[in-house]
Computed example of a mutant assay.
Amino acid sequence: MSAEPTALPYSTLDVPVRGGTLRTGVWGPQDPEAPAVLAVHGVTASHRTWGLLAQELDGVRLIAPDLRGRGRSNQLPGPFGMAAHADDLAAVMAAHGVGSAVVVGHSMGAFASVVLARRHPELVESLVLVDGGLPLQVPAGLSDEEVIQSVLGPAAERLAATFRSRDAYRDFWRVHPAFAEHWNALVEDYVDYDLAGEPPLLRPSTNYAAMARDTADLNGGAALMDALESLAVPAMMLRAPRGLLNEDAGLYTPGYVDQWARRLPDLQVRDVPGTNHYTIVMDSPGAAAVAGAVRQAVGALVKRHTPNAAG
């Protein structure tokens, strides 16, 4: 199902962080009093992941960075890992004058969001975790490179490829199993933004070293496990039933996710039918489902901070 962009206020801000600046995109009202949502993208993505969600969230200021090592933040140095991303996210919120917010994270962004709630608990009102945030469901004993191949596969290989033109990169993505039946204008914008360099040596903007270090950190990293065990804010996990290549097996099996929900009393789980790991945020019906969970969380936030709301 196609999704066409509409006119929506959008601006960028480069936020000072360790080693340089972090590019941040902001959609929605410029009013600092408007409800703010921090949106955190996945391991080889950028802030342009969130264009469709922004359209679904009328009246919300959606703040989304290019994480360290990605997009227009790809020159920032390491160390990488979830703790580093969490501290960068805290800097983003401070730069935009946001004292606390609902935080929505997709894939690796969900892991970074959980760690943000642990390292900077005053900043996070609640979490929406989109097909991520729980330890990777991979066999024990794999090396870091084996984990990368097991989880990311072709996504990791893409980072080493070059493309002669923007059209060539679009063609690469058009036949990707996740997008073959889900191409839309916002996906095209995401793909165009992803490129760095000049023709004929265009390449994806994600820094391979950042991706490799971060993926290793997802596989039982100390910061993540500590953050999950200490989870103290409401969290909704939305699971895509299909995987990164639109395969039948999603990133997480339902039983595995349910085990974590029983273990963590603040975690709720909901499946989003008809979605894969990408389209759960980048096409319908996924973006609408994510927006519904975010609106619910924002509504609860507003109620908590409105005097006499119950009356």
Rank of each mutant, 00 (worst) to 15 (best):
A185R: 15
D192H: 12
G197N: 03
A227S: 08
A261E: 01
M211Q: 12
A261C: 05
Y193L: 13
L251W: 07
N246L: 05
M211K: 15
D226K: 01
L224I: 11
A222M: 04
R239L: 01
P254S: 06
N207T: 14
H182D: 12
L195A: 11
P254C: 05
D214F: 08
G221I: 08
R213P: 01
N246S: 12
N246R: 01
N207K: 14
E247M: 10
L186K: 12
V233E: 03
Q259L: 07
E247H: 10
E181T: 14
A223C: 06
D192W: 03
A222D: 06
H182L: 10
A185T: 13
L251N: 03
E188T: 15
P234M: 06
L238A: 02
A209R: 14
A235D: 09
M211D: 05
L251R: 05
P241G: 03
L231K: 08
P199T: 07
A261Q: 04
E198R: 14
W183Y: 08
V233P: 07
E181M: 12
G243L: 02
P241H: 02
M225P: 10
Y193C: 12
Y252S: 01
N184Q: 10
D226S: 13
A196V: 14
R239V: 01
W183A: 12
A209Q: 13
R239A: 02
Y252I: 02
Q259C: 06
A196R: 15
A209D: 13
L186W: 13
M237P: 00
L238F: 08
D194V: 03
Q259P: 00
W260V: 00
G255S: 07
N207M: 08
L201G: 13
R239S: 02
Y193H: 15
A209P: 09
N207F: 04
M236F: 09
A210I: 09
D248V: 12
R213S: 15
N184I: 13
